[in-house]
Design a protein around this nucleic acid. Structure first.
Length: 572
RNA sequence: GCCCUUGUAGUUCAAUGGAUAGAACAGCGGACUUCUAAGCCGUUAAUGUUGGUUCGAUUCCAACCAAGGGCACCA
């Protein structure tokens, strides 16, 4: 419909003698302004030397004769409003056919096949073994998973990747702590959570020691870990690494992420060094003060060290090795997305510049998105003092609040636990995804746990409630049937059929928050609809239609939540 | 000092250069002995400052002010 209107406006413009006019045909935010609106008259006015209203009159006159019969029947009114907007009102049939599609296409409603055959890698979360999985990782995971699923909804195959720092100073510092506390090193019989807590404590000990002797010892440990030259250290290292990775999997399970590829710093370092040395000869890099650096200044960037003066690769060199590796394990990749915290933004600009000089084909397919920090109204986190907030702590706290809320509802234990998982994850994910990716998130625990309005649980609740109504209707024999002869279409119905467009926009802009905003508005529309209408009413001939609308709503809500990584519980 | 990002109701966030700047929370005021009240309805309240471009600017440009991040061997 939109395209048809657009085409005919273009024809009309040509007839009027205006070319190269940029205009849009869109859904006005205010439903009172009709179903479609265009600013074409405003844009073309100057070119035609007429007032916008006059131009609008001319275009409308042109459209009334040019629209083909099938279309003109569906456009029941064309009005000129405001400074010169042209508004189109559509007949109910336009919406009714879309409503039937929601129900028939079911889980697939909103998905497209546009990117079928393409393969996209999304790298995100990136926690480090031997260190705490903190709320920053939670943020990366939430955003990365949402973007991955949004890509999947376009028909692309998505491979999720996780890059982990299993060597380096942070590991050496943890190891230093372990060696001071060998007697406390946990046995395998100790619970995984406690073993992880031990490693975290050891990191805090190692990270806070700054005496010259200790620092020298840590440097030695760093080398030994890297070279795997000490059997005692190897044993602690292997155990600690395995436990960390095992622990991360328990969190991914809760959050709903499955990685296909795990990359480790220890595996990409050598290749990174090799590449840097190769391109040092080709003058991409240069030596400076004993280190190998990339001079970014000539590109408006800054200089970064790739290999330090001791000949060891920095993060930069490893990153080159990593991105090369990505295309080796997945040679048919059409796009490679990297999600990190925004403190790495400038640094990634340098890296992408280097890629464009070293491996242009990789650079062309690589995109970097950065997110802000999860901050709390009270206090800031500091990584070294050990008062970093573990993802698990936050999740558990929110789970407990959910449990408190539902304890008197009479659900059995298993169901209760599942609700706690799903709702807590939704509450946290929603607060991350509701705003555009990039800025810091001020996480207010009180707001997040209130679950009122504008929250993940609000959306889940609306969906569960809608499903419950549909279920109850079925019980008394009212089947959901879209009434093709329906006289009036509610704001809820008009809003529902816009879902595919919202998803489309989220896809092209890699912006999950458009979906969140839309779903929140949709839930609000449904709740208003629910309050105004008695949906189940055996004496009402429109009841079957209302049930169908309710079912369509539940379907879109479920689809929309799933595409941003939020599950809907069966009850709540 | 240089670079990047961000300044919108009391607070936390929205708004592909368009119509009356939209929600939520907090505040104030309501409705309901009906399908899940984690719900619904009403109401108070905002574009950091100064210019510029434009028919039209929260959006683009410049300067200033303020906040956050980055700027050589950490990641």
């Amino acid at each position: 419909m939109k395209k048809i209107i657009q085409e005919h406006i273009e024809k009309a413009l040509t007839k009027l003698g205006a070319t190269d006019v940029s205009f849009v045909v869109e859904h006005p935010a205010d439903l009172a302004h009709g179903d479609f609106a265009t600013n074409v008259a405003l844009s073309a006015a100057k070119k035609l030397g007429k007032k916008p209203r006059e131009v609008a009159d001319l275009i409308v006159a042109e459209l009334t004769v040019s629209l083909p019969v099938g279309v003109s029947e569906k456009v029941i009114a064309i009005e000129i409003a405001g400074p010169g907007f042209i508004n189109f009102r559509c007949s109910v049939s336009v919406f009714v056919t879309d409503l039937t599609r929601i129900i028939s296409e079911n889980k697939m409603y909103g998905s497209v096949v546009e990117r079928k055959g393409q393969k996209v890698m999304v790298e995100f979360t990136d926690p480090n073994p031997f260190k705490i999985f903190h709320i920053g990782h939670l943020m990366s995971n939430t955003i990365g998973e949402a973007i991955a699923r949004i890509m999947e909804s376009s028909g692309a195959e998505v491979v999720r990747a996780c890059y982990q720092g299993d060597v380096g100073l942070h590991v050496a510092r943890t190891m230093w702590g372990i060696l001071q506390n060998k007697d406390k090193f946990p046995k395998e019989s100790v619970s995984l959570v406690d073993r992880i807590k031990f490693l975290g404590d050891m990191y805090v000990i190692g990270a806070n020691i700054e005496t010259p002797e200790a620092l020298a010892e840590i440097a030695v440990l760093n080398k030994k870990i890297f070279e795997k030259s000490d059997s005692e250290i190897n044993e602690y290292y292997t155990k600690g690494r395995t436990w960390s990775l095992e622990y991360f999997e328990t969190i991914y399970k809760k959050l709903g992420t499955k990685f296909v590829h795990y990359f480790f710093e220890s595996e990409v370092a050598d290749e990174g060094v090799r590449i840097v040395r190769e391109f040092l000869k080709k003058d991409i890099f240069e030596e400076s003060d004993g280190a190998i650096v990339f001079k970014g200044e000539e590109f408006g960037l800054h200089t970064r060290v790739f290999i330090n003066s001791q000949g060891l690769p920095t993060y930069e060199a490893k990153e080159i090795g990593l991105n090369k590796r990505k295309f080796e394990v997945e040679p048919t990749l059409t796009e490679s997305i990297i999600i990190t915290a925004n403190e790495q933004s400038d640094y990634f600009k340098v890296l992408l510049k280097v890629f464009s000089l070293v491996y242009p084909e990789i650079a062309a397919k690589t995109k970097h998105f950065s997110h802000g920090m999860l901050r709390f109204a009270s206090g800031k986190m500091s990584s070294r003092k050990g008062n970093i907030i573990a993802a698990e702590t936050l999740i558990t706290d929110v789970e407990n609040l959910v449990l408190e809320k539902i304890k008197d509802r009479g659900f059995d234990a298993e169901v209760t636990q599942q609700i706690a998982y799903d709702v807590a994850a939704a509450a946290i994910k929603y607060s991350i995804l509701r705003q555009s990716v990039g800025g810091d998130i001020i996480y207010d625990v009180a707001t997040s746990v209130s679950f009122e309005g504008d929250s993940g649980p609000y959306l889940q609740y609306s969906c569960v409630r809608a499903r419950s109504v549909v279920g109850k209707a079925q019980e008394i024999g009212i089947k959901p049937v879209i009434d093709l002869q329906v006289r009036e279409v509610s704001p809820l119905e008009k809003m529902m059929v816009r879902y595919p467009e919202i998803l489309e926009r989220a896809r092209t802009e890699y912006a999950p928050h458009y979906i969140v905003t839309y779903l929140t508005e949709l839930a609000s529309a449904f709740n208003a609809y629910y309050a105004e209408n008695k949906i189940i009413d055996a004496t009402d001939t429109t009841s079957a239609h209302k049930v169908a609308v309710t079912q369509a709503f539940a379907q879109i809500m479920e689809n929309g939540l799933l595409v941003i990584g939020i599950r809907v519980p069966a009850k709540m």
